[in-house]
Amino acid sequence: MSDTLEQALNWINDPLNWTNPNGVIDRLIEHLWLSALAVLLGCLIAWPLGVWMGHRGRGGGLTVMVSNVSRAIPTLALLSLLPLTALGFGAPSVVPALAVFAIPPLLATAYTGVRECDPAARDAARGMGLSGAQVLWRVELPLAVPQMAAGFRTASVQVVATATLAALVNGGGLGVIISQGFGLGMSVGGGQILAGGVLVAGLALLIEGLLAVLEKLLTPRALNNRA
C-alpha cells in the first residue's frame, strides 16, 4: 500500500511525466479543450431553447424529461456509440457525447430562470410599453442570470468530470493517465493510477471552486442577495 503511494508521488514528481508529449500538460489542455467545446455546444442548444420556453411559459415538462432521460444513459455507452456513427473518432464524437450531459442543467436553469422572474417586474415592463422581445431582453434575461450562471457551473463541472471517460474510448483527455495505468496492471501501474486519480479529482474540484467564484463576480450586485 505504501509502495503504491510512493510510486504515485514519484510519478507526480517526475517532470518528464508532465512535459513529455502526451504528458500531463498536453492531456490537461486536451481535456479542457474538449470540455469547453462540449459546454459551448450545450449552451448553444440549451440556452435559446430554455429561454424561449421560459418566455412562452411552455415546456416545463420537457426540461424535467430531458434531465430524467439523460440520467439513465450511461456516458460510457454514448462515448462508445457515437464514434461508430457518421461522426467518426475523436473530438467530433466526444464533444457531442459530453454536450448531451451539459444540456439538462443548462436547459432547466434557463427555463426556470426566465419563467420564475418576478411577475410584478414583467407587468411593470409591459405597462411601460415594452414589447415581448424587449421584456425578454431587458427584464427577464437579466433577472435569469443568477440561475443560468448556476446551471452553467453545474454543467461545466459535470462535463469536466465525464470527459475523463473519453480516455476509455481513445478520446484523449486527462483520463488517459488513469486508463494507461490500468492497462499496465496494478503492480506496475498502481502509482500512475493513483496519481491520475488525484490529478483528475483535483481538476474537477478546482473548476468547481473557480466557477463558484466567477458566478459570484458575474451576478449583478442587486441580485446577489436573492440568489
Binding site: M1, T4, A8, V157, V160, A161, T162, T164, L165, A167, L168, G175, I178, S179, G181, F182, M186, G190, G191, I193, L194, G196, G197, V198, V200, A201, A204, L205, E208
Partner: peptide, 19 residues
C-alpha cells in the same frame, strides 16, 4: 466533494488499496 470527484478518478483512488 465526493459527488464532484469524477467516477473514474474515484475508482482510481480506491483501486490501489481495495484492488
Amino acid at each position: 466533494v465526493l459527488y464532484t470527484v469524477p467516477s473514474l478518478a474515484l475508482f482510481a483512488l480506491l483501486a490501489p488499496f481495495l484492488g
